[in-house]
């Protein structure tokens, strides 16, 4: 019984820790962020005229993507991209680039 209880507690703890690192080699967040890298550069580190997004705060990226999608923020191409992702996906993308240096 005790063992089972300990297991349940441990299990709950793990679930409660968001963004923890694990041996999974490919995450959904990385998969999504890799799409952005084509234009914004590897890991968001653009070498040219397209804005660098590596290291921007997650909140900023998330809000900017939502503003592109709603049209609140003017864009050339980003409105067409932003509409391709759910709020949850935008969160994952934002978190990925926020963690890049």
């Amino acid at each position: 019984m005790h063992r089972r209880l300990a297991f349940v507690i441990l299990f709950s703890l793990l679930i409660a820790m968001p963004g923890m690192s694990l041996a999974g080699k490919v995450s959904r967040g990385t998969m999504l962020a890799n799409s952005c890298a084509g234009c914004h550069g590897e890991d968001g580190k653009s070498p040219g005229a397209i804005p660098r997004i590596a290291g921007k705060s997650a909140g900023y990226i998330e809000q900017t993507m939502k503003d592109f999608a709603s049209g609140k923020r003017a864009a050339t191409v980003m409105g067409r991209h932003a509409l391709g992702y759910t709020d949850e996906e935008i969160k994952l993308i934002a978190k990925y680039f926020a963690s890049q240096q």
């Binding site: 679930i15 968001p18 690192s21 694990l22 995450s27």
Partner: peptide
């Protein structure tokens, strides 16, 4: 960069 969501964890756990 390895990101692990709750859903991913549950999937593996499951």
């Amino acid at each position: 960069m390895k990101d692990y969501s709750r859903r991913d964890f549950l999937k593996i756990a499951g």
